[in-house]
Design a protein around this nucleic acid. Sequence first.
DNA 1: ATATCATATGAACAGTTATTCATATGTTCA
DNA 2: TGAACATATGAATAACTGTTCATATGATAT
Lengths: 121, 121
Amino acid sequence: MHENYGSDKCDCNIIHEDVVNMVRKNMPKEEYLYDLAELFKVFGDTTRIKILYALFASEMCVCDIASLINMTQSAVSHQLRVLKQARLVKYRKEGKIVYYSLDDEHIKHIFDQGLMHITET
Amino acid sequence: MHENYGSDKCDCNIIHEDVVNMVRKNMPKEEYLYDLAELFKVFGDTTRIKILYALFASEMCVCDIASLINMTQSAVSHQLRVLKQARLVKYRKEGKIVYYSLDDEHIKHIFDQGLMHITET
DNA sequence: ATATCATATGAACAGTTATTCATATGTTCA
DNA sequence: TGAACATATGAATAACTGTTCATATGATAT
């Protein structure tokens, strides 16, 4: 009785057509969902999480960050580039030293909510 | 003058020792940071984001989810397992049909904050 | 019983990613 | 100018991840 509406990938039948249609109406734009996943991808790495938490406390230069989290300067520099591209950190130069700091107020809230999930029983 | 304190990986010198020590004191436990990254890793995939957004609107069976987001039943099932392991979704069985629903109230807040970052100018 | 359907799962493959290494850039200081 | 230092970056490698395919499981209905 039920037909498969417009999906070439799905290899099964829609069981609750009304529910699917209702949910489809409420889905955010595909583009937003993609961008959201991209953002969380950036958060999904221990090194980057450590860097961001460090910057919650203070702006820091690359060398200090590397020392703090016990990673090579190169690894930290690579990750800072990722964070910079995601518009999560910004930097200022002072001679040969580059200071990085946070560029977003939402991060802390996101992390706090994340920690609430983790620390639940 | 500056020495490298206890880090074997870092290949540079601590420039601001006081800052590093202060920041180190304020860092959350290594374990939390690891778990947090693991959580965000789960969010860092478009398919899983879509599934979670779908479940914001209603509980759904696997087949309906697959149809909605235009993925194979198998792919969806694999991702639901990941979400289940992360304690983000739960399920109930009704005959041969399995209904999945959200198992966490924090997710929506996390996503909303994430969207605020994305939709900023 | 057997055919059908919904779901789960293991293996394989392709694509992605984080770190390392070597090196380049640009600044400071002697 | 040249040595030392902070940072950036490209290439290579190893590890990880998501999808697909084939198949298994378990339930329903005839």
